[in-house]
Amino acid sequence: MKQHITLFTDILPEEQERMRICFNAREETFRSGETIMEYAGTMQKIGVILYGRAVLYCCDTDGDENMIDELNKEAVFGEPFLLPSDSQHYYVVAAEETRAMFIDYEHVIKRCENACHHHSQMVSNLLQLTALQSRQQMERIYVLSRSTTRQKILSYLNALSAEKQSDTVRIPMSYTSLAQYLSVDRSAMTRELKNLEEEQIIEKNGRNILVRKYRLQI
């Protein structure tokens, strides 16, 4: 099984404490609806969700707001993962009470005089997380490129099943958020999920879904 990578993978607790001082780490708690971070045009800081849930949004020049990603515990965000363009405004908003830690990007890329192990390990983890997020963004582009609501739902469930290596998956967000994430109408998505249940392609219990792959056609 693949190792679950976080910013602190293979960094001992005592090293994490030294890292917080070395990297000038700061923690802050946000209420639901509060803006956690607005992206700048340059790579300035990295954020880590310590607990809670947040959403990354993008607002274009027409003022249209689009959900880009949902961020849960240990999720990493910031300009290094999605360098904003001048025509789009990216920002992270707390979906519930959320605590985040912030690290200046400059402290990560500049080696300290001691060349400590935890610094090198964090850079390695950061590179792996960047590659992982790039892959996830490509998978979402594929899902969004599907022409119908049904195809988008099935492509998303198939990708989630492959990621979890299980036919039973749990939608990691509300169905309202999922509709926004898939860029489909909420009512249309609900009808299509019901159709998929009636056709016995999926079995739904709340946000838990069993995907019968032998009947899956995308």
Rank of each mutant, 00 (worst) to 15 (best):
I21E: 13
A25V: 05
A40V: 12
V48R: 03
Y51H: 15
V48Q: 02
A75I: 04
M37C: 12
F23N: 00
T61M: 14
C59E: 15
G52N: 10
I36P: 02
Y51F: 10
I49F: 03
M37R: 02
T61Q: 12
A25R: 05
V55I: 05
E28P: 06
T61W: 07
N24A: 13
E79G: 08
E70Y: 07
E14H: 07
P13N: 04
I68K: 03
S85I: 11
T61S: 11
I36Y: 00
I11M: 01
M67Q: 09
M37E: 10
E27Q: 09
R18W: 01
V55F: 06
E15G: 01
R31L: 15
Q44R: 15
M37S: 08
T9I: 01
G63V: 08
I46W: 03
G63P: 13
P13T: 02
V76I: 13
M67A: 12
E74D: 11
A40Y: 05
L50Q: 12
C59F: 02
T42A: 13
T42S: 11
T35C: 02
E70I: 09
A25M: 12
E28C: 12
N24T: 08
I68Q: 06
G41S: 11
I11F: 06
G41D: 15
F23K: 08
D86S: 15
E27N: 07
N24E: 15
S32F: 06
L71H: 01
E38G: 07
F23E: 00
G63Q: 05
F23R: 02
N24S: 13
A40I: 08
T35Y: 00
E79T: 13
E38S: 09
P13M: 06
T42Q: 12
C59L: 14
A54F: 04
D69S: 05
M67Y: 03
F77Y: 14
Y39H: 02
L71P: 01
E27Y: 06
R20P: 01
T29F: 07
S85F: 12
C58P: 08
G41L: 15
G52V: 03
E17S: 09
L56S: 03
L82P: 08
E15D: 11
I11W: 00
T35K: 03
E65M: 14
P84F: 14
G78K: 05
L71S: 05
N66Q: 14
K73Q: 15
P84S: 12
P84W: 10
G47F: 10
E27K: 07
